[in-house]
Amino acid sequence: MAATKINLHSIPDLKNTTDDAIAPYMSTLSYKQSHHLTDVRLALGFSACAIAAATFYYDFTLGWQKTKDATLYAVIAYFILNTMLTLWIWAVEGGKVYVGSKGGEKITIETYSGKYSPIYEVQVTTNKGIRKVKGEYMKWFDVRGRLVEERLREFLEEVVGGEKKGQ
């Protein structure tokens, strides 16, 4: 993990690399990750692709005249699925990078970064409520663009276990 160098001037690179490090960290805290959001997205997307592929296949083998009625329904179904997928990504998934649980406690971690801002904004939703934490990428990336895991872990401890510290 630490071997990968990223471009320090690219906010998406910084955010993606940090996001990807959250799940391994949570598993060390024995949280169990739920892939429900991703799975629904993949299912919606690949169903839409399957419709397009079938349309392509039947159009290719049978020709336009025989398939044009079915094509109308396929086009409608495809764009309905595509709209659902877009809504799912925008409204349901949003910035959620981790959903998991430990015991009965559910935890959802959402992250945001402004387009040109080096600030990592984290929102943690648990059974106890919502909490927001901000961190700077420079605190857990070294000058060469490598993720320093210990530093990130310190930040994530603050993110996940913040209440305990605060009490």
Binding site: G45, F46, I51
Partner: peptide
């Protein structure tokens, strides 16, 4: 660095571009 689900996601992004282009074309056809 990508995990299986992330790779599937990236493949999906690519396939959706092709599929959408094709289905827009078919929509025009209809």
């Amino acid at each position: 660095r990508l995990k299986p689900r992330q790779i599937l996601g990236q493949v999906l992004n690519f396939m959706l571009i092709l599929a959408s282009a094709f289905m827009i074309w078919k929509g025009l056809s209809v």
